[in-house]
């Protein structure tokens, strides 16, 4: 696990590197634009407003995040993550034939998907990294395998059963039906997933195994 946490730290640095440009770009361009259009007076106020609404945003979502991670801890210990993982076993084996023979790997992959489904971001990432490690075990490859691509695409189009953070933010902004988006979120996630995986399969056929 020490290996994992140092890897995560390095990668977060890469992410921060990208955000250096995005974040400072937004601020610098906003200031330049308002100087050109002569509206820079509003900018100082907007920083203060932003700081205020950032705290409101955090306050709105923090309670729900904590409540939900408490509930999910109960679900995890009660074996619900495992039960859902078992449910996905057959489908995942078909999507990633290379993982089918390895019980440990198959377990890590399906537990990762299950954790994603329940919105357990904190649990899903270590499980996913463990799955990637097992997929590359003894191979030391530099090029992604077909199964790795499918697995990463599954993770980038993760379906979440209960969109808690968004519902909390909607409720804070005075929505009369914060959870009303749930069915749409499911439909769109499934559509995204089907397109991503189908395309990966088409690439697999076209490009051959790496």
């Amino acid at each position: 696990m020490a290996y994992l946490s140092s890897a995560i730290k390095n990668l977060l640095k890469i992410g921060d590197f990208m955000m250096n440009y995005i974040w400072s770009g937004i601020i610098v361009l906003s200031i330049l634009y308002s100087l050109f259009t002569g509206g820079s007076g509003a900018l100082t106020n907007s920083v203060m407003d932003g700081a205020k609404s950032a705290l409101a945003l955090i306050a709105a979502t923090a309670g729900m995040m904590c409540f939900w991670s408490g509930i999910m801890r109960i679900a995890q210990c009660g074996g619900i993550t495992k039960a859902i993982a078992r449910l996905f076993h057959p489908a995942l084996k078909r999507l990633m034939p290379e993982i089918a023979d390895d019980d440990e790997l198959c377990g890590a992959v399906s537990m990762n998907i299950s954790a994603n489904l329940l919105g357990l971001g904190n649990a899903a990432t270590p499980l996913g990294l463990e799955a990637m490690r097992l997929m590359n075990k003894g191979l030391g490859r530099r090029t992604a395998s077909n199964s790795m691509v499918v697995f990463v695409v599954l993770n980038t189009a993760s379906i979440q059963l209960v969109p808690t953070t968004i519902a909390a933010l909607r409720s804070e902004n005075g929505s009369c039906d914060p959870m009303g988006i749930t069915l749409n979120v499911w439909l769109c996630s499934i559509a995204a997933l089907v397109v991503g995986i189908s395309l990966a399969k088409i690439f697999e056929r076209g490009g051959g195994a790496a």
């Binding site: 990668l11 996913g128 990294l129 691509v149 189009a157 995204a192 397109v195 395309l199 690439f203």
Partner: peptide, 29 residues
């Protein structure tokens, strides 16, 4: 972020068709 963290953790630099597939999924969503 997910692509960087998953591939980076095992030292894979050639991600092949991951980015187009993941972006197609995002676009569909």
């Amino acid at each position: 972020y997910a692509i960087a963290i998953y591939y980076g953790s095992v030292g894979i630099s050639k991600t092949r068709h991951t980015v187009p597939c993941a972006l197609a999924a995002d676009f569909t969503g």
